[in-house]
């Protein structure tokens, strides 16, 4: 089965930022993403998602390497200083290249 290489960008950050991040993704031209609620612990303490000020989200975007790069640069410039955020990248294989 022929597969095609793409990049998976995963962002874990404050739930507060969801609206603003979705706007960014649209502007940068991402064609789809998945957002899930998350909780955990990091440099900014425990994030338990027990109530609205205390939740995390995980955003996953599968896209081509150029967009992945652009996205990572943008996130670093705009959010890293003041928000709880981590971003990591994977190589992934997809079946339908036209979709990503």
């Amino acid at each position: 089965m022929a597969t095609h290489l793409r990049r998976l960008v995963t962002v874990v950050t404050e739930a507060n930022l969801e609206r603003s991040l979705v706007d960014d993704l649209e502007q940068l031209g991402a064609r789809g993403w998945t957002i899930t609620d998350a909780r955990g612990r990091g440099a900014r303490g425990r994030r338990t998602s027990g109530w609205e000020q205390d939740g995390n989200i995980r955003i996953e975007v599968v896209c081509d390497p150029e967009l992945a790069d652009k996205l990572v640069q943008h996130l670093r410039a705009r959010y890293y200083d003041h928000y709880a955020m981590i971003v990591f990248l994977h190589d992934v294989e997809v079946l339908r290249p036209d979709k990503f």
Binding site: E14, N16, L17, S20, G45, E52, Q53, D81, H82, Y83
Partner: peptide, 19 residues
């Protein structure tokens, strides 16, 4: 306030420490 103000300040004034 612990709902409207934290959410608004977090987006508008990110330099402020929400803790």
């Amino acid at each position: 306030s612990y709902i409207a103000a934290p959410a608004a300040m977090r987006t508008a004034v990110p330099e402020a420490n929400p803790a």
